[in-house]
Design a protein around this nucleic acid. Structure first.
Lengths: 251, 251
DNA sequence: AATCATCGGTTCATTAAATGAACCGATAAG
DNA sequence: CTTATCGGTTCATTTAATGAACCGATGATT
């Protein structure tokens, strides 16, 4: 069913970095003939999957996707999968766990399970998480689409504590290490006394779309504790990735 | 581009009432040959648009839609359209305005603009709104997919105030009137002292997906005030409907 | 002002893909 | 045991898709 395949493959050229694209450019990107590309776009537009801007004539993802995503969410909510995974993670590690999605230049916590301990890290849903200064942020940037990482690191990076790394070069080295290890650890970089351990969450496009993390008081986060928590965070992130439509990981 | 058209038309058979569907049933519903339907589903699945349940072998909408919806939202947020519309509505009417989407058996407020008046109705984002006892609920049910309305009205309907209508037959007559007028008014039915005026919001499937409403202290909601507010609420609902992918209304 | 490049969009002879009746094994109901 | 229906597959036949060449419009360059 090659024709449907080709038409749907056009959707992968839309991203947060490329929210809209003209007909000729999309034909070039996809390698399809301009006439063929236009026919695909007309068919996608008919079903609300894309829409054409009346002024610029360029195409963007359409509002019909919102409805389909709402039906999907209503009947198969990500939360239904995420919440048990986060609860498990809290049971196993004893610390607060959260799941965040990238949107509009930062991560936003959309799933949360809190530790039962009286001394625990408090997080709020919807809070924006700075990317360069948190374990979640670093875990995301290490596996995000490179254009996003480049853009974040090209801006001025504020310090939140005296331990915050603000140099782009040094952060890039940290990201390289995170990629190798598959997990990010950040201690006292956003808030004194807090240690975060985070792994990236992927969806169907192969790049990170969010993270799973636990947050612990730094006093409890000794090296051997961190070593035992890391695989649990990675397991949880992988499980949520599958729910987000990622391909199963080998190994 | 008939083939792409047909493939995408399969997506309209998924709904909150029919979250999953088998191959043969989908072929019957769509009128396509079973072999053809399967080829379409395989192509849609490849791009994450649908996915097949490993146990039941039935198909449902896929996680890939969530990613596309997130890209769409990140770059063209509904809130960017909704918020100015709600702010306008507050300017014109002087009362708190809110936009709600239907999900999981109730409406949830997802957009809000509050009146500047010290005596005003307070609403919270994310609050579940009962369907039979509010203007928003009635505006939604009047234009929702009939299976939803039937299901809501087949359940026991609790009273919130002494003015709450709880009889299904009486509510159906109210809904009939709402359909004629295009707007619902509810006074003291959910909370004493509060009057709501609501209109349905549509998306691309032709049925209501949510509502726009204003909420005013009942003491300010005299008949002539209500008469002047109704067209403003309908105008706002229509504008948001277009952003949600509805076809433009004639007239 | 004229020229050039590229845009979105269209056409129709040519090429390729889609189609669906018939068939299969598996499973559940009677 | 029989029947009905499921998901899935095949290949001769039918139908749709394709893309080079073309169009008018627009913006940049000379």
């Amino acid at each position: 069913m090659q024709t449907v395949d080709k038409a749907l493959s056009l959707l992968s050229y839309f991203s947060e970095q490329r929210p809209s694209v003209g007909l000729s450019e999309l034909a070039r990107l996809s390698g399809f003939n301009k006439a063929t590309t236009r026919r695909f776009l007309v068919a996608l537009e008919k079903h609300g999957i894309v829409e054409q801007d009346a002024t610029t004539r360029s195409y963007r993802l359409g509002a019909g996707l919102l409805r389909l995503a709402r039906v999907r969410e209503a009947t198969n909510p990500v939360a239904a999968i995420v919440q048990p995974v986060l609860n498990d993670l809290v049971s196993v590690t004893g610390e607060t766990a959260h799941f965040s999605l990238y949107a509009g230049g930062s991560l936003a916590t959309v799933g949360l399970s809190e530790s039962a301990k009286s001394s625990r890290v408090m997080l709020g849903k919807g809070e924006a998480i700075p990317l360069h200064a948190t374990a979640s942020g670093l875990a995301y940037l290490a596996f995000a689409r490179p254009a996003i990482t480049d853009r974040v690191l090209s801006k001025a990076l504020p310090a939140f504590t005296e331990h915050t790394v603000t140099g782009a070069d040094k952060i890039r080295r940290q990201l390289s290490s995170v990629r190798k290890q598959g997990v990010a650890v950040a201690r006292n970089t956003f808030e004194d006394g807090v240690c975060g351990i985070a792994a990236p969450v992927f969806d169907s496009d192969g790049f990170a779309c969010g993270t799973v993390a636990i947050a612990a008081p730094a006093a409890r986060a000794q090296r051997k504790v961190i070593a035992s928590v890391q695989p649990e965070v990675m397991r949880a992130a992988n499980e949520i990735s599958l729910a987000m439509g990622a391909e199963p990981r080998s190994g």
